[in-house]
């Protein structure tokens, strides 16, 4: 009796798994994206080259999403979007100034409103992963390479201004600014080679980003990347 219940449950599970895979196979990621994502995200490129264009950006550009993200993270996030940028896609659109002090208008910063089903997320993640930057070098960073956390912290928080704009978690404590995306979950979210390329030339990806382009050695860029892609 118990055995037949287990068998039934197993058969049910198998049926469910098959159904989900079947639905994913039937879904067209491009069509789902067009319906649920394209009104806010730029999937065709290029990035805006003007200040006023950047002010109008509603959500991050995704025309190089396949170079930037890890597929598994996309699949999870698309089903349950959370806020990554504490001050929104463009911080200037979410400011309140009182007595000469700026603060973030928290009510104006909302996570992505589209919530996809598991099957839709698989299909859209596949579609996004096809949008790769042709020039980005792959295999530059070996994420398993050993590095000194104290040296990375010295670079990130003392020698260079990274921590001024980006939040990270160090030994269970969050620190850092809010005008850039939080990097607290970078280990699961970002492709190490893209992090390296973004540090190397922020304006290549977004000509009007408010991230400075700083001349760093390969060794420093590599250690910053290894530090960031170990954040969780």
């Amino acid at each position: 009796m118990a055995r037949s219940r287990i068998l039934n449950a197993a058969a049910g599970g198998l049926f469910l798994a098959t159904a989900v895979v079947g639905e994913a196979a039937a879904l067209d990621g491009k069509a789902v994206f067009a319906e649920k994502c394209a009104s806010c995200h730029n999937i065709t490129g290029p990035a805006s080259t003007t200040f006023h264009g950047v002010l109008q950006r509603k959500a991050p550009d995704l025309f190089y999403a396949g170079s930037k993200f890890q597929r598994e993270w996309l699949v999870r996030w698309l089903q349950s979007p959370s806020r990554i940028r504490p001050s929104g896609t463009m911080f200037l659109n979410h400011l309140v100034t009182e007595d000469g002090k700026d603060r973030i208008d928290e009510g104006a910063v909302k996570p992505c409103a589209s919530r996809l089903s598991a099957a839709e997320s698989e299909a859209v993640a596949d579609y996004l992963m096809t949008h790769r930057d042709a020039k980005m070098r792959a295999g530059v960073v070996d994420r398993d390479k050993k590095f000194s956390t104290s040296r990375a912290l010295q670079l990130f928080t003392k020698q260079y201004p990274c921590v001024g704009c980006h939040r990270v978690r160090v030994r269970d404590k969050e620190t850092g600014g809010v005008s850039g995306p939080a990097l607290t979950d970078a280990s699961e979210r970002l492709n190490p080679d893209w992090v390296y390329a973004r540090i190397e030339n922020p304006q290549y990806w977004d000509p009007k980003t408010w991230m400075p382009k700083i001349d760093l050695s390969h060794e420093k860029r590599e250690i910053l990347t290894l530090f960031l892609v170990s954040r969780k």
Binding site: P86, S87, F91, L92, L95, T97, G100, K101, D102, R103, I104, G164, C165, R167, T175, G176, G177, V178, S179, W210
Partner: peptide, 20 residues
Amino acid sequence: VQCHGTAGTGQGINQTAGGL
């Protein structure tokens, strides 16, 4: 403005919310 603030007073969001 991200650090120096809209009014230029040094009270941008990286200061007021981040804590430089």
